[in-house]
Amino acid sequence: MEKTYRITETELSRLESDLDRALDEKGKQKEQSERLRKQLKTLEIQSVERKKALETVRKSFEEYAEEERKKQKRLRRERNAAIGLAGLLAVALVARA
Rank of each mutant, 00 (worst) to 15 (best):
K28Y: 03
K28A: 09
K28G: 04
K28Q: 08
Q29E: 13
Q29H: 08
K30L: 06
K30A: 14
K30C: 03
K30D: 13
E31A: 12
E31P: 00
E31H: 06
Q32H: 09
Q32V: 05
Q32C: 02
Q32K: 11
Q32W: 04
S33A: 01
S33Q: 06
S33R: 04
S33D: 06
E34C: 01
R35T: 14
R35A: 12
L36D: 07
L36C: 00
L36V: 01
L36Y: 03
L36K: 08
L36Q: 11
R37A: 03
R37N: 07
R37F: 03
R37T: 04
R37L: 03
R37K: 15
R37I: 00
K38N: 10
K38W: 03
K38R: 13
Q39W: 01
Q39H: 09
Q39A: 05
Q39R: 13
L40G: 03
L40W: 06
L40M: 10
L40S: 09
L40A: 08
L40R: 12
K41D: 05
K41A: 06
K41S: 07
K41N: 09
T42C: 02
T42E: 15
T42F: 02
T42S: 11
T42K: 12
T42W: 06
L43T: 11
L43C: 05
L43Q: 13
E44N: 09
E44I: 07
I45Y: 08
I45N: 15
I45G: 05
Q46K: 12
Q46C: 03
Q46L: 06
S47T: 15
S47W: 09
S47P: 01
S47N: 15
V48N: 12
V48E: 15
V48M: 09
V48Q: 14
V48L: 10
E49M: 03
E49H: 06
E49A: 07
E49G: 02
E49K: 07
R50I: 07
R50S: 14
R50F: 11
R50Y: 12
K51I: 02
K51P: 00
K51G: 08
K52N: 12
K52Q: 12
K52P: 00
K52T: 03
A53G: 07
A53P: 01
A53C: 05
A53Y: 05
A53F: 05
A53Q: 13
L54M: 08
E55K: 07
E55C: 00
E55P: 00
E55M: 03
T56K: 10
T56C: 04
T56V: 10
T56A: 11
T56M: 06
T56R: 10
T56G: 08
V57Q: 08
V57H: 06
V57I: 15
V57K: 08
V57L: 08
V57E: 05
R58A: 11
K59I: 05
K59M: 04
K59D: 09
S60F: 04
S60Q: 15
S60M: 05
S60L: 04
F61Q: 14
F61L: 13
F61C: 07
E62A: 12
E63F: 02
E63S: 09
E63N: 12
E63W: 01
E63K: 10
Y64E: 15
Y64P: 00
Y64V: 07
Y64G: 11
Y64T: 13
A65R: 15
A65Q: 15
A65G: 07
A65T: 14
A65N: 15
A65F: 12
A65K: 15
E66C: 03
E66D: 14
E67Q: 14
E68H: 09
E68R: 14
E68C: 08
E68M: 12
R69T: 05
R69Y: 06
